[in-house]
């Protein structure tokens, strides 16, 4: 049985690697389909044909796309992330601090929202059909159905415009005291937490409800177990896989949410960097940022899958 678990886990990791390859291929070719010539775009209208040709060769633009792809992926694997078109700074240098900022934001959001969301989701499942459950369900559907920027703008309207508690914008590099840190983080974290908690509550509730509907939960009840015991001892251990999956998937919504949130609050993270790179068509920067996001997503769902495999009692 142990070897079966190892086999499944390795299988899952291999699948993740294959996926990563397909993803990088897709990202590369989506950006390589640029109409017009990058060299011309970069050098501007006044460039001489010779200069364009020189740059083309220097950038390997004359080579077949597949070769360029291999060169690019090889560079990524060895840590050479390329050079920004826009300001000729190595991409790695541009990304470094920004990535740390985004990770900080994501970590704070996760720490805030995961316990709250799991608690609310489990409680809603246990109190299924009550007013509490219906209110939670309606609210989560509401939050899921509106765009992230609406939640962000509503937060600004409420806390900055009407209550005047917080500044509308945040700059992580001007933080000197704990109080400032709080003020800088509160709005982005609040917005992101709303977005991902709604998903997490829904999925957690569904997982626990499913486990509670199983005959073994009924059996426990008929053995005289209290509702609390049925939930904690019988439903939760079996819902663990799906719940971890829910957490991982919800955290992956962070990736989408962070793009909007960093933009709207002017937060100097990697997502803001990428959005800016799109407007300047800085392809190496876009490609690298995109790969970082996809890597994060794959990491999350692969971990969730592995937890599900390891926690499956039938494989014990």
């Amino acid at each position: 049985m142990k070897s079966q678990i190892a086999y499944l886990v390795l299988n899952r990791m291999a699948a993740a690697l294959v996926t990563l390859l397909v993803v990088s291929f897709t990202i590369f070719f989506a950006t390589a389909m640029l109409p017009g010539d990058v060299a011309e775009v970069l050098l501007g209208q006044a460039a001489t044909p010779e200069a364009v040709a020189g740059l083309r060769t220097a950038m390997h633009l004359d080579e077949p796309a597949i070769l360029r792809f291999l060169r690019w992926i090889g560079g990524l694997a060895t840590g050479d992330l390329g050079t920004s078109y826009a300001n000729a700074i190595p991409v790695a240098k541009l990304i470094g601090g920004r990535l740390a900022n985004t990770l900080k934001l994501a970590a704070v959001t996760a720490v805030v929202s995961v316990p709250v969301a799991l608690g609310l989701g489990i409680l809603a499942a246990v109190l299924r059909g009550t007013l509490f459950d219906r209110v939670v369900t309606a609210l989560t559907i509401g939050v899921i159905s509106v765009p992230e920027f609406m939640i962000a703008t509503s937060a600004v309207l409420l806390f900055s415009v009407y209550l005047k508690w917080l500044p509308a914008l945040s700059f992580a590099n001007e933080v000197q005291s704990l109080g400032q840190l709080l003020r800088v983080f509160v709005m982005p974290v609040l917005t992101l937490s709303f977005v991902i908690s709604a998903q997490m509550i829904r999925m957690t509730r569904a997982a626990v409800v499913e486990a509670l509907d199983k005959p073994y939960a009924e059996m426990a009840l008929l053995k005289g177990a209290s509702r609390t015991r049925v939930v904690l001892r019988h439903a939760l251990p079996n819902a663990l896989g799906p719940i971890v999956n829910a957490v991982a998937l919800s955290l992956s919504y962070l990736l989408g949410g962070v793009i909007i949130v960093e933009t709207i609050f002017n937060y100097p993270g990697i997502a803001k960097l990428m959005v800016d790179a799109v407007s300047t068509r800085d392809l190496p920067l876009i490609q690298t940022c995109a790969m970082i996001f996809c890597l994060g997503y794959l990491l999350l769902i692969t971990i969730a899958d592995i937890v599900a495999i390891v926690s499956n009692p039938r494989l014990r």
């Binding site: 397909v22 990736l255 794959l298």
Partner: peptide, 24 residues
């Protein structure tokens, strides 16, 4: 299935960003 699953593992907003950056 494998191919579409891989495609699905690109966060949707990100995919949008990449395509717009590439094609306009």
């Amino acid at each position: 299935s494998r191919f579409l699953d891989a495609l699905n593992s690109i966060p949707s907003k990100l995919f949008g960003l990449v395509v717009v950056a590439g094609i306009g």
